[in-house]
């Protein structure tokens, strides 16, 4: 069965490594914070100026001055720090943040990502996404395999305006985990009960499929 959003987040959480600073985008990536594997320590960076971001506050304890990049009220964990936006993006551009997880509307087989604009329809701006994808060493995209019309979002070439080029390393969808390497998608894992044939049929980009594709362990 295809994963739900929480399933995608749980699978991505398995990629976290002890000692990492991690930036999580809005949507599915935010959920990753709820499933940190036991025995490891990671710290979450929010690009509006928080390191050591904690969970949502208890009701009645919300602080309008303490929000994340999605403008949600949050808390700060012991050892947290606050800083200005230039310092925040120095952490990002300077590759002090080890992992970026973000959503996408389209991803292509050479690692291009589009997630900020649909011409004529939606122009909200890129926020920090372009800085994040241009610099992060390790970028995982959390997304659905197809759009609402059933068209693949895992493409040979993106059709929407790009956020960054040649930058995505791994994609986790409701169907599969794929690595991007040498201009191709490599199928690493499939969601429990999902067939390789279904993944192939829903992937527009070039997909390398090994003889055995293990199921994800969620």
């Amino acid at each position: 069965m295809a994963l739900d959003k929480i399933g995608i987040a749980k699978r991505i959480a398995q990629e976290l490594k002890d000692g990492w600073y991690v930036n999580l985008g809005i949507g599915i990536p935010t959920i990753v914070a709820n499933y940190i594997p036991q025995g490891i320590e990671v710290e979450f960076q929010s690009e509006n100026g928080v390191l050591g971001m904690g969970p949502f506050p208890f009701e009645g304890e919300e602080d309008p001055d303490l929000i994340n990049a999605g403008k949600q009220t949050i808390t700060a964990l012991p050892g947290a720090s606050f800083f200005d936006s230039a310092t925040s993006f120095a952490m990002i551009r300077g590759q002090h943040v080890q992992l970026t997880v973000l959503g996408a509307m389209e991803v292509s087989q050479n690692g291009d990502i589009a997630n900020w604009k649909i011409p004529g329809k939606m122009v909200k701006g890129m926020g920090g996404a372009m800085d994040l994808v241009a610099s992060a060493d390790n970028i995982i995209v959390a997304m659905m395999h197809s759009n609402r019309a059933g068209e693949s979002k895992i493409l040979k070439q993106c059709t929407l305006p790009l956020t960054g080029v040649n930058c995505v390393k791994k994609v986790v969808t409701e169907l599969a985990v794929m690595e991007i390497k040498d201009g191709k998608f490599y199928l690493l894992e499939r969601a429990p009960g999902v067939s390789v044939e279904e993944i192939i049929s829903k992937t527009d980009g070039e997909l390398v499929v090994p003889d055995v594709v293990p199921e994800m362990k969620i």
């Binding site: 690009e47 200005d84 936006s85 230039a86 925040s88 993006f89 990002i92 551009r93 122009v123 701006g125 890129m126 926020g127 920090g128 996404a129 372009m130 800085d131």
Partner: peptide
């Protein structure tokens, strides 16, 4: 913005911060 009354220059957040700095 869509009607053209407002000019908009969208800039990556980190570039905006650094351009001010």
């Amino acid at each position: 913005m869509l009607s053209g009354e407002l000019e908009v220059d969208l800039i990556p957040q980190g570039s905006l911060a650094e351009r001010c700095r």
